[in-house]
């Protein structure tokens, strides 16, 4: 495995992802600066969380036009797995690799807390044993309110492309557990070819019970098992 982590000015979870991948899987990711233009041998690309370019214009918008993104888009279109976490998810919607947009949280507040999430849709990113099981991961965002038009949402549901939804501790998806106003409580989605995953929650911040939880460990184990 040659995981590559893209570092933008203002990324702040790049080292967290590095440590999570290194500690859990033993692979040492390569850190790639946003101004670079090649991703040699990368067979997993991670767009980390943070506040690239200060969230100016729209969160992720300026980063999505960075020189390295041409290569990320090319690789993604050729099937290379790409994970975007938080700001990484925003960058993926801004560059068009994932549909929809991440808008200001409906109550206007920055949300920083652990949230319950469930995966009810069977797709390649989700371990079958985890279907319907509730996991607990932190979020930290101001713009996590997922929006897409009705047709897109319908297509995501029909094609099993919803990766995570905000839910109650019992796994019930309802308005009270919708922390940021996202359409259908969506916290993460995947691309039509299934190789691109975008999610607002931070698995890399949940790899140690002393830091609040360790459901992120399984996330990275699953990803690397799937990728082989």
């Amino acid at each position: 495995m040659k995981p590559n982590i893209i570092v933008f000015p203002g990324s702040n979870c790049d080292r967290d992802v590095y440590i999570a991948i290194k500690n859990i899987t033993g692979h040492s990711p390569k850190m790639v600066w946003h101004k670079d233009t090649s991703l040699e041998n990368a067979n997993l690309i991670v767009l980390p969380g943070g506040f690239s370019h200060g969230d100016y214009l729209r969160s992720g918008s300026i980063a999505s036009r960075a020189p390295i993104m041409k290569e990320v888009i090319k690789k993604a279109k050729n099937g290379t797995p790409v994970i975007g976490i938080c700001n990484g998810f925003q960058i993926l919607t801004e560059c068009g690799l994932l549909p929809g947009a991440l808008m200001r949280n409906n109550k206007m507040q920055f949300i920083c807390k652990y949230t319950h999430l469930v995966s009810n849709y069977d797709n390649t990113w989700i371990n079958k044993k985890q279907l319907g099981k509730v996991i607990f991961l932190p979020v930290a965002h101001h713009d996590g309110n997922y929006y897409a038009d009705d047709n897109t949402i319908e297509r995501l549901i029909k094609d099993n492309r919803i990766a995570y939804q905000y839910c109650t501790s019992a796994g019930i998806i309802e308005q009270s557990s919708n922390i940021n106003g996202s359409t259908n409580n969506i916290a993460g989605i995947i691309s039509d070819k299934e190789n691109v995953l975008g999610m607002m929650p931070h698995p890399e911040r949940a790899i140690n019970t002393k830091l609040g939880g360790e459901d992120g460990i399984n996330f990275f184990k699953n990803v690397f098992e799937k990728l082989g």
Binding site: L57, R58, S61, I62, R65, T93, E94, P99, G100, A101, M103, Y147, A148
Partner: peptide, 9 residues
């Protein structure tokens, strides 16, 4: 089209 507006929203 390239940067100022996100045509999705």
């Amino acid at each position: 089209k390239v940067l100022l507006a996100n045509m999705v929203i």
